[in-house]
Design a protein around this nucleic acid. Structure first.
Length: 644
RNA sequence: GCCGAAGUAGCUCAAUUGGCAGAGCAUCGCAUUCGUAAUGCGAGGGUUAAGGGUUCAAGUCCCUUCUUCGGCUCCA
């Protein structure tokens, strides 16, 4: 038999017999490598360590150091989960069980719901199977035979029908478990050392809510127990930064059942942060040539019928109010209002671009299960604006908006974000305005602008607005969930729908293009993000209370009031702790409130016109003249410094 | 909206097989005047989310609704 040639990553080549397995090569190289090996890559294709190599190829042995190995490892753990579930509950039907960013899940169809106690039982069973050191064996089946074999495992049959070739691969785990699967897997269950089942959730088959709802078990797995424990610890720490929890602890906002779900009440300290954000963005927009307007939260249904919202967005709107002669609705967006402002007078090409902005409050009937703290609400105030411009100005305006976004993110301390080009779902066209040429144009304009700015982005079909494609900027919350914050949308539909025009240099009417944009998102969502980003310890310029004066005894109370007055006169948001408590307690509480500066005043400070400065992060900074402290903190506020 | 879990004092949480609703912190009162993360003593505080049912007896069991949490779907 001819021998084949294996090329290793370092470029070295060696002959081998056809059918040699990656694990054999790993053993030749070193027993330690063979021991650490998880999976292999053969000519770039993921391979089981035990899968024979039939022809000359490049071989790479993957160990826990390779991120792809962890994916495989978790996928194998998902199979282990499925095997355990089938041993305990044989009537269960299997869905899919992939590795995900934070672990893995497996979807099951079973009449009785899994309980948290079941989860424990399943986990124990998994360990039991793990100890049997069962191999994950790759076998092949012909399609018709497979369909027969899987019989009433309806989801597997559906997958085989849709995805399998004439001959497909399966993986066994012991004599009774077999799963339609592309692989690869770790060699056997003894490789799996650390995992934990985390939660049970409902999930629709193939992610479609019209399909049957399955039970999904989430879990996570790591190569070592230590990594697993570290991960669980990080989860706990993340929970401590959760904006819902900090919102309560720091008295930023509350949600009251009697007011209604998704309708948060801003408490004074949260309102201060919101006000600062609002003032900040209004100032930036004024400098960038925006004109701010006010428009009403209510409108006749007719307005939204004309804009197309009624046809495409009705499900997300609160139902209309029936009045004597007409129907009114709470607005879900304020683009129509701004359009009518544009239309309120004749526009010349010399006027363009017209940039109309508003902190627009809007109401969306979010599904009850989607609501969450300040990040998903039913009443929100958006940093909204609509730019009406000539077609040839779109690119420049787009770039102008991006600059605004970059500046705002810098000032707010936001450094981690990603760009998503949200496009129409070609398979679900009735969700969108029907005009293919317009969609193609919108997409082209966006891509050109993105390329001009050299931004890296991912295209996301199905995420567009009903009236056009958009660029979304995504931020991840403390639990890693991505949400859209900033958004820029190029719209050819609404100008057409409303017959907008401007008089061109040629004296004729032309149709403007509309850019919808939100820079700092909604006040609600941005505040929720900042709470989590800073864990409640806001940069000085955003902190609801920037400094607190802490007299040591009642003797310094008068002096404390004077220091407070000085701070307030300088525009510093300051408080004075007048209680007759020990300074230790006052410090502890100020520290828990994450107030940036604690100003301890005792007899010494009083005598010298000073304050003893304590920084929430760096502790005691020593005494300083009041005027010096004020100059320093003003510097931090005015420069919007975000680091301490 | 759907699947699952939960809702007890302002907050965090107890309360045995159905058998007198409790603790810590917070609040209020009094004392204390203290130098960088909790001073002491005392007092008040509840229609156990709301409504209905079973029972001699319900925080506990059953039903309905509301809200919250984890997901799915959806989105700024």
């Amino acid at each position: 038999m001819d021998s084949i040639e294996i090329t290793l990553p370092d470029g070295s080549r060696q002959p081998a017999a056809p059918g040699t397995r990656p694990i054999d090569i790993a053993r030749q190289i070193s027993p330690r490598l063979a021991d650490a090996a998880v999976v292999a890559k053969v000519d770039g294709e993921m391979y089981d360590l035990t899968r024979p190599i039939e022809k000359s190829a490049q071989l790479q042995i993957l160990t826990p150091r390779d991120p792809e190995a962890l994916q495989v490892y978790r996928h194998s753990t998902a199979h282990l989960l499925a095997a355990a579930v089938l041993e305990l509950y044989p009537e269960t039907k299997l869905g899919i069980g992939p590795a995900i960013e934070s672990g893995f899940y497996y979807d099951f169809d079973r009449a009785t719901p899994f309980t948290p106690e079941d989860l424990e039982k399943i986990e124990n069973k998994m360990w039991e199977i793990q100890k049997r050191h069962l191999p994950y064996e790759r076998v092949y089946t012909r399609k018709e035979e497979g369909l027969r074999k899987y019989g009433d495992a309806w989801m597997k049959c559906e997958l085989i029908r849709d995805r399998a070739g004439e001959v497909f691969s399966e993986y066994t785990l012991g004599p009774h478990f077999i799963d339609f699967c592309r692989g690869p897997h770790v060699p056997d269950t003894s490789k799996i050392k650390a995992f934990k089942l985390l939660s049970i959730a409902g999930a629709y088959w193939r992610g479609d809510e019209h399909n049957k709802q399955l039970q999904r078990i989430y879990g996570t797995a790591f190569f070592t127990q230590k990594e697993l424990e570290d991960y669980l610890k990080r989860l706990e720490e993340a929970k401590r930064r959760d904006h819902r929890r900090l919102g309560k602890e720091l008295e930023l906002f509350t949600v009251n059942e009697t007011v209604g779900a998704g309708l948060p009440l801003w408490l004074p300290k949260g309102a201060t942060i919101r006000r600062l954000l609002e003032e900040y963005i209004l100032e930036r927009e004024r400098a960038a040539g925006y004109q701010h307007v006010y428009t009403p939260d209510l409108a006749k249904v007719e307005l939204y019928q004309r804009s197309g919202h009624w046809e495409h967005y009705k499900d997300s709107m609160f139902p209309p109010m029936d009045l004597e002669t007409e129907q009114m609705v709470l607005r879900p967006m304020n683009c129509p209002h701004h359009i009518l402002i544009y239309e309120s007078k004749q526009r010349s090409y010399r006027d363009l671009p017209v940039r109309i902005a508003e902190l627009g409050t809007m109401y969306r009937y979010e599904r009850s299960g989607a609501l969450s703290g300040l990040s998903r609400v039913r009443c929100m105030t958006l940093n909204d604006a609509h730019i009406f411009c000539a077609p040839e100005q779109v690119k420049e305006e787009f770039i102008g908006v991006m600059k605004l976004v970059e500046q705002a993110y810098k000032d707010l301390g936001i450094t981690q974000y990603s760009y998503r080009l949200s496009l129409r779902d070609p398979a679900d066209k009735q969700k969108y305005v029907d005009n293919d040429a317009m969609w193609a144009l919108g997409e082209r304009v966006l891509r050109e602008a993105l390329d001009a700015l050299e931004l890296k982005y991912v295209a996301a079909p199905g995420e567009a607005a009903f009236y056009g494609p958009k660029l979304d900027i995504q931020l991840a919350d403390v639990m890693g969930h991505e949400e859209t914050y900033s958004t820029i949308q190029v719209d050819f539909h609404l100008p057409n729908q409303f017959g907008l025009k401007y008089v061109g240099a040629d004296g004729k009417d032309h149709q403007p293009v509309m850019i919808h944009r939100g820079v700092i998102s909604t006040m609600e969502r941005m505040t929720s993000y900042l709470i989590e980003l800073y864990g409640g310890a806001f940069p000085v310029w955003l902190a609801p209370v920037q400094a607190i004066v802490l007299p040591i005894t009642d003797r310094q109370m008068e002096y404390g009031r004077k220091v407070l007055a000085d701070l307030q006169a300088a525009g510093v948001r300051a408080e004075l702790d007048e209680r007759s408590e020990k300074v230790n307690l006052k410090i502890r509480e100020a520290q828990l409130q994450k107030i940036p500066y604690m100003l301890v005043v005792g007899d010494r400070e009083q005598q010298n016109g000073q304050v003893a400065v304590r920084n929430r992060k760096h502790g005691d900074q020593g005494a300083q003249a009041v005027a010096d402290f004020i100059a320093e903190i003003r510097g931090l506020i005015d420069s919007k410094t975000v680091s301490e």
